[in-house]
Design a protein around this nucleic acid. Sequence first.
DNA 1: TGTTAGCACTTTGATAAAGAAAGTGCTAGA
DNA 2: TCTAGCACTTTCTTTATCAAAGTGCTAACA
Lengths: 335, 335
Amino acid sequence: MDKRQENLLKAIVETYVKTIKPVGSKALCQKFHCSSATIRNEMAVLESLGYIEKNHISSGRVPSELGYKYYVDNLMEPEKLTGSDMLKLQTIVKNHDLVLSDAINKCMEIISDLTNYASIVLGNKASDNHLKQVSVIPIEDGKIVALVVSDKGIVENKQFTLPDNTDIKELIKTSEIINKMLIGTPINEVAKRLELEIKPVIANQIREYEAVYNIFYNAFNDFAADNHSDFTTHGRVKILEQPEYSDSESIKKIAYKLDDEKFMKHTIEKDSDDINIYIGEDSDVDNNTTVIKRKYDINGQTGTIAIIGPKRMEYARVMSLLDYALEEIKKKDGK
Amino acid sequence: MDKRQENLLKAIVETYVKTIKPVGSKALCQKFHCSSATIRNEMAVLESLGYIEKNHISSGRVPSELGYKYYVDNLMEPEKLTGSDMLKLQTIVKNHDLVLSDAINKCMEIISDLTNYASIVLGNKASDNHLKQVSVIPIEDGKIVALVVSDKGIVENKQFTLPDNTDIKELIKTSEIINKMLIGTPINEVAKRLELEIKPVIANQIREYEAVYNIFYNAFNDFAADNHSDFTTHGRVKILEQPEYSDSESIKKIAYKLDDEKFMKHTIEKDSDDINIYIGEDSDVDNNTTVIKRKYDINGQTGTIAIIGPKRMEYARVMSLLDYALEEIKKKDGK
DNA sequence: TGTTAGCACTTTGATAAAGAAAGTGCTAGA
DNA sequence: TCTAGCACTTTCTTTATCAAAGTGCTAACA
């Protein structure tokens, strides 16, 4: 591919992203100062290389998956955000006195609004959360709430009906023992240590220790790997405005995928790179869909954010929006 | 309307619900032991009364909104559930040792699965929740988590960055004061009492009392009226299987509504009757949609459950499913 | 007076035909 | 190496046709 062919591919991708219509040779004459026939010849080359495709023999060209990939890897230029886009993100970050995770969520909500793509925020992994405190609070009707708080501020709670013969005091005593012995343990390892270290200890001190043990065991299991609730989606409906999802079959497909938390988590956690762009087939969502995911680490708080939209995505703009949002948040969180 | 006309309306509604096709006169001959012409004459009467409609001059008949209402109020007979339906609900209620609210949620999820309608569970109102405990837990980076627990077991948590000059001890001391003075207060009144009763008290005892006060004020405000998180939707995607939502415009419309928590809460809370059935226009969702809502009170735990589906809903079956689920839960919770 | 057979009439929905629009590939000449 | 020209292809839209389904009405019947 020579320079002109690269420029042509770039122009085809960017025109198609804007117009959503297959790009014909005539449309690009002006930009390249040559005739449509010349463009057609070059297009034939790009097509033989697999970067662009035709829907049918006499239609304009559409970027192929390979074409998008080449564009993203080699041709895309960073896009300058509009003042309005920047302002909206700034307003969020500055005006509200939000903690980090709320600020990230708000920003991703805004980005989803601005672009009509869906967005996802996935917080720290369970293994990055360490036990800070467990407590037991009696509520009405002989029930209790077990609370688990991690050092990152994630809170999980679960209600239990207090088994007969169990004294609330025994639960509280056990929670104190746990707090003494297990603080700082990665959340997903607590259940194991509970069995190995706590159970033998309470066996001597607590009367109904089996029942008590089970309550804590269940509470922690809910908070264990892959099950913590620090996962938020925005714009699951907004994305339906994209014409790629305008027939009911596509709508259902994308809606089901976005609704499937387990699947989305897996897609977003699968590679360990800082930035991944999964285009079409690679997205595992739908041949027409792209997932852009990106890790963040702001003063030790880590997580992943992702944007889900059509393959025909405004790649440069999305990258800039994510950059800008993370930078603004970092700036503010630092001060 | 005489008896035969009522039976005819009943047959039209039930046939249409099953077949989703306008009901012609021929289809009902057998059932009524008469000719299609007779049925046509009776249909003309029902149409003039506004209970059924035609899509076009030569199409079969479809129940009108008024027709559905009449059916629900006067003609519908309680439906015997299939063994399989009952079994699925029983399995949930019995096998898992779930607390009440989890059991209700699970059941509504099952009902949504069984029917392909969406379902909603709305727990106790903020005013039914009374303060049980507030606590402050320091986490990393000088942040804290403020926890509010109600007597119904609802837990809300909010992170704050600890303002400079604020000592965590002052926060904890304040939380103890609140726990001493305000336990039992309806959650939505706490913010007010905080200002009137707590603020003056801590003004003398706490150094940076303004900052401390603000943290608790904000924490409670989040838990106040209409903002508590005890609201769950199931089957927002499942409902798209209904042919009423098969063109993209209808899909988007229902998806937006179901995604709008504020709107759904309002729809489900608006009347104070035990059971309300909002058909079509009345549902405020969509002319093709019905909302069935129903309050429950199981041993003092109150709330509302709702089913959202097409106007062409299996009314009798849904009512029976809701009845059965609530009864099973009540049975189990009592023992 | 209620019921029914018969028939003309209407709308829908599927299928096919026709023509315009958009765009390509290829050839030949500059 | 570029370009003008042209035949060719596919899609999209419009129009026509025809069977299917169902109604309303009339007239006859029990």
